[in-house]
């Protein structure tokens, strides 16, 4: 299919718009789409995202509660200001101490994810391992439903029920 604008290159971007119940379609090449201000999803690299989030002032919405901001980690002495300045945390406990502030940031950085479902240290207590396995199964179940793979979804549901 040829680009509707330049009529020469192949159309690789296909735009469907529904406005007032009327459906219109546009088929454009990469270059013409960019000239029209339409491009592939504009992705923000994570480091940029992190610095943008951290650059927001403490009074702005979504950057954590006032109690979080005033908090000093008793284990490392870090504050949120310090985190903003260095873009790294002071110790593993900061994930609990500043959780309210960090959680939205973690969600944005990891496409909404807030639970680990990967490798587990072999020396971890059994109940913790089981907690991670449940998180993994739930995520796989959501994925299976999204992909309309109902057979797999049923198997995963049964596995979850058995836990």
């Amino acid at each position: 299919m040829q680009c509707e604008i330049c009529q020469s290159k192949d159309a690789t971007i296909h735009l469907t718009e529904i406005s007032d119940g009327v459906r219109t379609e546009m088929h454009l090449c990469e270059q013409c789409a960019q000239e029209q201000g339409i491009g592939a999803k504009n992705y923000i690299p994570l480091n940029e995202l992190l610095s943008n989030l951290l650059a927001v002032g403490p009074k702005d919405e979504g950057v954590g509660s006032l109690s979080d901001i005033a908090e000093i980690c008793p284990h490392c002495g870090f504050t949120l200001d310090k985190f903003r300045e260095k873009a790294v945390l002071g110790c593993p406990h900061d994930y609990e101490v500043f959780e309210k502030t960090l959680l939205p940031l973690i969600k944005k950085a990891h496409e909404g994810a807030t639970a680990h479902c990967g490798k587990v240290p072999s020396r971890l207590p059994k109940d913790s391992k089981s907690q991670i396995e449940i998180a993994r199964l739930k995520r796989q179940l959501d994925e299976a439903i999204k992909n309309e793979d109902y057979e797999l979804a049923a198997q995963l549901r049964d596995k979850l029920a058995g836990r």
């Binding site: 790294v88 593993p92 960090l102 973690i106 639970a115 680990h116 391992k129």
Partner: peptide
């Protein structure tokens, strides 16, 4: 290793968290 059952392997920057 520093590890939390909820967040996985704990890293200095939250962008590396989990695995």
């Amino acid at each position: 290793y520093a590890f939390s059952p909820k967040y996985g392997y704990l890293t200095a920057c939250p962008t590396n968290l989990g695995t």
